[in-house]
Design a protein around this nucleic acid. Structure first.
Lengths: 164, 164
DNA sequence: GCATAAGTGAGAACCGTTCTCAGTTACATG
DNA sequence: CATGTAACTGAGAACGGTTCTCACTTATGC
């Protein structure tokens, strides 16, 4: 696998042998399920894993283009939406009108606190506790879906004052 | 222009004498602050108040067009964003890619549970309690902004099964 | 191999929203 | 009341992130 370069402070040189390809239980099957494998989708999954914070499709695209300059944006959009569909990626809000995505390996349900400076992510417990759900029920509602997007600044960005 | 949807069951015929106009402390000053009054903005504020749930700009536009067929969509977008700026309206998520807005008179900080069937809204306490903020701080973050969008079905829509 | 269905790349289309621009109008001021 | 001016309006163009289309390629099961 070719070394992909830095994307938003993420060093991409980590060896990713565990992602190599066509192995029955590779992370790629986690990313795309029973879908077909392609070199492009491999690169895209690797790119997603290499970020250790939230990223936009644009950022992922630039990352991936360092390895394959001809990759199309539609391909990345399709791959991202497939990965979201398989629970490999998660949507975590937006920045300047661009959707933010995140690879999170923690299985337990929780939310994310995204640094608007650098995309670094911290975990936040799901605030929709029993009390909140009961309260909704008391008003006759059944909760079907919720989004909790929390934005802030990480310690490092606070020091440098580079909020976005 | 784009397909306009039915006014989501809100009847606009309610008399709104309290909103009439040019009164020093009318709700319109709450809607637009020190901005100039215009018949269009009056209608738009009245329309926003007439909905008793969440609505999209499109829906508000159709509503307002029943009183003034020539009103432009840009005018409604501008008025809505002015009202959001003055805290008269609140953004409460989206439905099918259309932003949802809400007139909420409760001053205390809280969130909203939007029925995806009819737009009816229930209150939900802000889940970002001290514990969550402390937990963020422990990870070096300062929280600057949060969005909590909760979607569900109200009792009535549950009965009729008309989820969207 | 071979068939075929899934994936790809380029670029057009989509569509909610914002911008531009010329015309109108509310309103402060005298 | 007249007047100046800055805010507002309406029409339509532009914007921009995302999705769709279509012809082509290719992974994969048989």
């Amino acid at each position: 696998m070719h070394a992909l370069r830095v994307c938003r402070g993420v060093c991409f040189v980590k060896t990713m042998s565990h992602l190599s390809s066509s192995r029955p239980e590779s992370p790629e099957s986690a990313a795309y399920g029973r879908g077909r494998r392609s070199p492009q989708r491999s690169l895209i999954a690797q790119g997603a894993v290499a970020f250790d914070g939230a990223f936009t499709v644009d950022e992922l695209l630039s990352c991936v283009r360092e390895s394959d300059a001809k990759i199309g944006s539609a391909t990345v959009y399709r791959a991202v939406s497939a990965m979201v569909g398989h629970g490999f990626l998660e949507a975590v809000g937006e920045r300047d009108g661009h959707a933010l995505y995140l690879r999170c390996t923690d299985d337990e349900h929780h939310h994310h606190l995204v640094c608007t400076g650098c995309g670094t992510v911290a975990h936040a417990p799901c605030p929709l506790d029993d009390h909140a759900i009961e309260q909704a029920a008391a008003q006759g509602f059944v909760v079907t879906r919720h989004e909790v997007n929390i934005y802030g600044l990480c310690a490092q960005c606070l020091r440098h004052g580079d909020a976005r």
